[in-house]
Computed example of a mutant assay.
Amino acid sequence: MQLKALAVPLCVLSLALSGCASKYVDPAQYSGFLKDYSNLKEEKSPSGADVMRWIDPKVDVRKFTSVYVEPSQLYPKPQPTEKIPQSTLNGITTYYDQTLKNAFVKALPLATGPGPGVLVVRPAITAASAKTKGLAPYEVIPIALVAAGVSAATGIRDQDTSLATEAAFLDGSNNKLVAQVVRKGAGADLENSDQVLQAKDFKAVLDVWAQDMVKSYQQLKK
């Protein structure tokens, strides 16, 4: 019985140790929001973060005279939990939409929809999690992995938070894909495992993502 009782926490711990090594979203965790992941390559974002990215080598971004930011999605559609309630999920996408628009409007006028000369930005939040430091995710959208047993055994209280996104960039005149990116980032630390995640815990990372997207566009334009 003792060996059986130890099996689950040891398994969870081994998953945590193997998962923490990568700075990129594991391909096994790609959500399916993007249609094709085969061309993604390891790159550095303008802020120096590790991302998986593809840009059409033939694209001329100077032809885009405006940008349309589609409402961001939660993909796959998650089930709210006590740790990550629906209000938090709604708050994340609302803030993501606004910070993308605030960043892009500094480079291009905002359009009201796709069309000739319009760069379409199609973003999604594909994971939100909180994990006890050094352990496996406490709760991941849409998959829940509870590590409470291991957490109690270690006595560790602080919790890391993280968020993942996938985004596609399309030519508004023909819906042709011109770029895509997959990345993850750290949110604010929580004091303990009882603290509920809030949208404000991810504002800083969402700001960086939006700024990196615009800077990447500006670099291509040069």
Rank of each mutant, 00 (worst) to 15 (best):
M1C: 07
L6F: 14
L6T: 02
A7H: 06
C11T: 14
V12Q: 12
L15I: 09
S18Q: 12
C20M: 14
S22N: 15
K35F: 04
K35Y: 06
N39F: 04
K41P: 03
R53H: 02
W54V: 03
W54G: 04
I55L: 05
P57K: 11
E70C: 09
P71N: 02
L74K: 06
K77T: 15
Q79E: 15
T81E: 10
K83C: 01
Q86P: 10
T88M: 13
N90R: 13
T94E: 14
Y96S: 09
N102M: 09
V105S: 12
L108A: 02
P109M: 12
A111G: 08
G113H: 06
P116L: 06
A127K: 15
A127W: 10
K131V: 01
P137R: 02
I141M: 13
P142L: 02
I143H: 06
L145K: 01
A147I: 10
S151K: 12
I156D: 09
A168L: 07
F169W: 11
F169N: 00
N174A: 12
N175W: 01
V181F: 03
R183G: 03
G185P: 12
L197V: 15
D201G: 10
A204D: 15
V205L: 02
V205P: 10
V205Q: 13
D207C: 00
D212V: 07
K215E: 15
S216A: 12
Y217L: 14
K221N: 14
